[in-house]
């Protein structure tokens, strides 16, 4: 226990600092408002929420991966790039803390903002309950997986943010990587990969798709492999984040 506390020293300070930075400035509010506007627009205008005739949130959840792919890199881009631009990474590296505390503190702060944004969509859940009798357990499960998937996108964005001092570069690179992870399950992409590298490779690529792993949850099915996948992506990029953020020590 004490070794865990030791490993996570700096977590609380970093988390509090980042939450303060998000909510002390317009960033978090702008993010939450624009995200809600976008998801509302897509759900109603593009997916015809009221026209489907069934009381469920399928047209709402279908857009999550696509919106996360663009929005969450915008949330994560400042996490490390800002430290490098302002020289405060020098300060962080001079503190007697281990990397996990810093990496996870920042990650959970951004994830918290995403969770708050997601929480503001709960009125939609209430609305479908007023309109009919949806499968509430399935919706709760989809919300949970959506939040987990958001964590994976943020972890990617945070790690890439530690590679550059420019938030714009971090954002663009993160969207590209997030796009690749999202569409890896698309038939269009898979047939392209199959043509070049064979069907075995295409199957392997499909295993890394966020769309594929979110699909089961959208149908209300809890898939252990999807949970493991998203947690694995979070962990993998958190490790890369730690490595990339400390490479300054090597010069």
């Amino acid at each position: 226990m004490s070794s865990l506390a030791e490993a996570l020293r700096g977590f609380r300070a970093t988390y509090a600092r980042e939450i303060g930075a998000y909510f002390g400035a317009p960033i978090a509010y702008v993010f939450i408002i624009v995200f809600l506007l976008a998801i509302g627009l897509f759900t109603w205008e593009m997916a015809g929420f009221f026209e489907t005739g069934s009381a469920d949130l399928a047209p709402f959840f279908a857009w999550h991966p696509w919106l996360y792919m663009v929005f969450l890199p915008a949330l994560a881009m400042r996490l490390w790039a800002d430290e490098r631009a302002g020289g405060t990474d020098e300060l962080l590296l001079s503190l007697p803390v281990r990397m996990p505390g810093l990496v996870l503190g920042k990650f959970f702060a951004a994830w918290t903002v995403a969770a708050v944004a997601l929480a503001f969509t709960l009125p939609m859940w209430i609305t479908v309950n007023a309109l009919g009798s949806p499968d509430n357990a399935a919706i709760a499960l989809t919300y949970f997986m959506s939040l987990l998937m958001a964590g994976a996108y943020i972890s990617i964005g945070a790690a890439i943010s530690s590679l550059t001092s420019s938030q714009v570069t971090a954002f663009v690179l993160s969207v590209v990587v997030a796009f690749l992870f999202t569409v890896a399950g698309w038939p269009l992409v898979l047939s392209g990969v199959a043509d070049v590298a064979g069907t075995g490779m295409a199957e392997a690529v499909a295993r890394f798709s966020f769309l594929t792993h979110f699909e089961g949850a959208q149908r209300g099915v809890l898939e252990l492999r999807a949970v493991v996948f998203f947690v694995g992506v979070i962990a993998l990029f958190a490790c890369l984040n730690g490595l990339w953020a400390t490479r300054k020590r090597l010069g």
Binding site: A13, G20, G86
Partner: peptide
């Protein structure tokens, strides 16, 4: 450090508390 890098969005007491708390 050179140039005394600080978190510009914090007040001095907030910043000092952050450093102290990160130091355990």
């Amino acid at each position: 450090p050179e140039g005394a890098p600080l978190y510009l969005d914090m007040t001095p007491p907030e910043f000092l508390r952050f450093v102290g708390s990160a130091r355990g």
